[in-house]
């Protein structure tokens, strides 16, 4: 196996730091995110290293809590996406025929909605909140993931080891579970990381518009929305969560690239 490049190791390190922050917030490090510690709208200084917000709360614990909320929400949503996409993508890709047509048409319908419109529709139906945010992330990330898993499953299904298993009399669950799934797992993992970064962006957008996570709970989207109101008077309010959001998305994408380089070359090597 090839050694991962420096960029993806850096991305992984950055991501780990964010996760540690989020976990730290759960353990109470950095202080109570809802406690009022000083005057309103203070620039960064001792006691409030990222400044204070419009209620006088320190931004440090709030950003830490926000990262945690956002990462947790997106990760859970992406796990759901991965499970759903893997199931339908693999079955559609292996079986073909009408089932394949049905799954692909459904996915195309979903795909044709712009992500944020879809998310707002979901929030309108379910009512604003964490459930709506998660459901939106799932619906936005499912189409691409299902299509790519299906494409990978079509290719894997034609390989000789799958045919050999069928000739040996293996039943469908065994063929799919032992032969197809492990060989499309790389695709699922790589697409999962990309879906995670999309999920973070969707959560940010939804909460920013007020359809996602609801205050006083902090998420990166909520913090950016609140910071946006005071962007001229107190730019640090939007700067902290903004930088963290960009860092999270970038590092996840970089890790995804590294993962792809690790998992896919062996699969796509030429015929020789």
């Amino acid at each position: 196996m090839k050694r991962p490049d420096r960029l993806s190791i850096g991305g992984l390190a950055c991501l780990l730091v964010l996760v540690v922050f989020a976990l730290g917030s759960l353990a109470g490090a950095g202080g109570d995110p809802d406690a009022i510690v000083g005057p309103r709208l203070q620039p960064p200084g001792p006691g409030w290293w990222l400044g204070t917000d419009n209620l006088g709360r320190s931004m440090v614990p709030r950003v830490m809590e926000g990262v945690g909320t956002t990462l947790l929400l997106s990760s859970l949503a992406v796990l759901v996406t991965a499970a759903v996409s893997a199931t339908f993508g693999i079955i559609a890709g292996y079986r073909g025929g009408y089932l394949n047509e049905l799954v692909m048409r459904l996915v195309e319908v979903l795909y044709s909605f712009p992500a944020i419109v879809l998310a707002i529709l979901v929030a309108a139906v379910l009512g604003p909140g964490q459930v709506a945010a998660s459901a939106s992330i799932v619906l936005v990330t499912i189409p691409l993931m299902t299509r790519l898993v299906r494409a990978a499953a079509v290719a894997v299904s034609q390989r000789d080891y799958v045919t050999s298993a069928v000739i040996s009399g293996a039943r469908l669950p065994r063929v799919l579970g032992r032969h197809v799934l492990p060989n499309v797992a790389g695709t699922i993992a790589v697409q999962g990381t990309y879906a995670l970064s999309v999920g973070i962006a969707v959560e940010g957008g939804l909460s920013f518009l007020g359809f996602g996570v609801q205050p006083p709970q902090a998420s990166l989207g909520v913090l950016i929305q609140q910071g946006g109101t005071y962007m001229i008077a107190a730019p640090w309010l939007i700067l902290g969560p903004g930088v963290v959001l960009v860092a999270a998305i970038l590092s996840i994408n970089v890790v995804g690239d590294g993962l792809r380089d690790q998992l896919e070359p062996r699969e796509t090597r030429s015929l020789t």
Partner: peptide, 23 residues
């Protein structure tokens, strides 16, 4: 097919893909 399981086998063309790379 299962009724013939084990009584009939095959050796197929591509050495590169004849075996599951994850097994």
């Amino acid at each position: 097919r299962r009724e013939l399981a084990g009584r009939m086998q095959a050796v197929l063309q591509h050495p590169h893909w004849s075996l599951n790379p994850r097994m």
